[in-house]
Design a binder for these strands. Sequence first.
DNA 1: ATCTATTTTCCAACATAATGGATTTTTTAC
DNA 2: GTAAAAAATCCATTATGTTGGAAAATAGAT
Lengths: 197, 197
Amino acid sequence: MPTKRKSVPQIGDRIRDLRKEKSLTLDQLAALSGVSKSMLSQIERGQANPTFATLWNLTQSFGMDIHELLEGTPRGPEPDVVRIELVPGNLTPTMTSPDGSCVMRILSPVENAAVCEWYELRFEPGGVLRSAPHARGTREHLTVLAGSITVESAGARDSVITGGTARYPADCDHALINPGDCEALALLVVERLQGVQ
Amino acid sequence: MPTKRKSVPQIGDRIRDLRKEKSLTLDQLAALSGVSKSMLSQIERGQANPTFATLWNLTQSFGMDIHELLEGTPRGPEPDVVRIELVPGNLTPTMTSPDGSCVMRILSPVENAAVCEWYELRFEPGGVLRSAPHARGTREHLTVLAGSITVESAGARDSVITGGTARYPADCDHALINPGDCEALALLVVERLQGVQ
DNA sequence: ATCTATTTTCCAACATAATGGATTTTTTAC
DNA sequence: GTAAAAAATCCATTATGTTGGAAAATAGAT
């Protein structure tokens, strides 16, 4: 199975460096962090893999969060990415609307960073897909490949025919409806606002 | 001595939410992350405190780092945009391959922040779209809607039939070819790796 | 060099992380 | 409604995380 996971960062040397920078002994850091000096020694030497709670308490006693700890660690090797990954149609994950009138095939990779996801939507005649607000700043882009679809977002309402694209906010209640008497097919891209901290 | 450490965040509900958002069962996430489904269930219910390595692998399989898990949804200013923007099919920008055998309709907004772009591709029989390497880290995702398409990337070569999706590096020479004797239709998503300068 | 103090590592015991497989619960199909 | 399939939780086991205190190593003073 192809893995896209980066290797686990080695944090021991970084922790020892931080401790030395602050001129702390293992005993002192143990008192500050609530982690035993034995455990600290093992972590620094890479001989133990701390639990999340232990690591949290440890970084907090340095006055930092875990990601600040990780920023100073050497990168692991680049993951080996399979050259061409094939997802056959019958193994493509699907979701269905509550009343079954709309089937979504999830085309984006499941491990995608949550900036951009995309789906193929198939609506029965009269089919509806209603959604609650997504995260603030989220927008959707709907391109109709067959049939027509009515888009509702934030009180506005518009129809898109084959070949057309609608872009609208998805951080409010929104809905997609097939008003016609034949099946509709569409591509939906869900795009989250970037660069926001 | 009073401790200034913030209490350890509860991550179980957040992990379950993320899993549900991606429509994954515990079994599927276990396969993706390398963490047992028993352990995933315990983490989600707050019954176990994962080690750093376990949590790292888990967050990586969601395509995020640990701090993103801790942060929740990014916040930012409300976008000030037209409610529903319509781009009719006849006004959708197009590009054509040099020999005219492939027509691309640009479905993503032209002002996109170049992290994610998407196109509808239409190939004549025997049609070819060859591309030079994009920026480092760029990947492409091709879903075939009709016919079949052969994908070439970095010396690898694979065929995708209707309904299937191929994911491959686009930071090297790559090409898409319609080997059949009828028209092929596909969706192409070009995704640039974030955080790479 | 020796002696003392400090710091780190070792050790054994206990607690729990993590697992594979069984069982229970929930969902789906009819 | 029932039966089957899928998903989640339970259970027993193994491995390891974590500890307090002892032993070893290192640093500092003379």
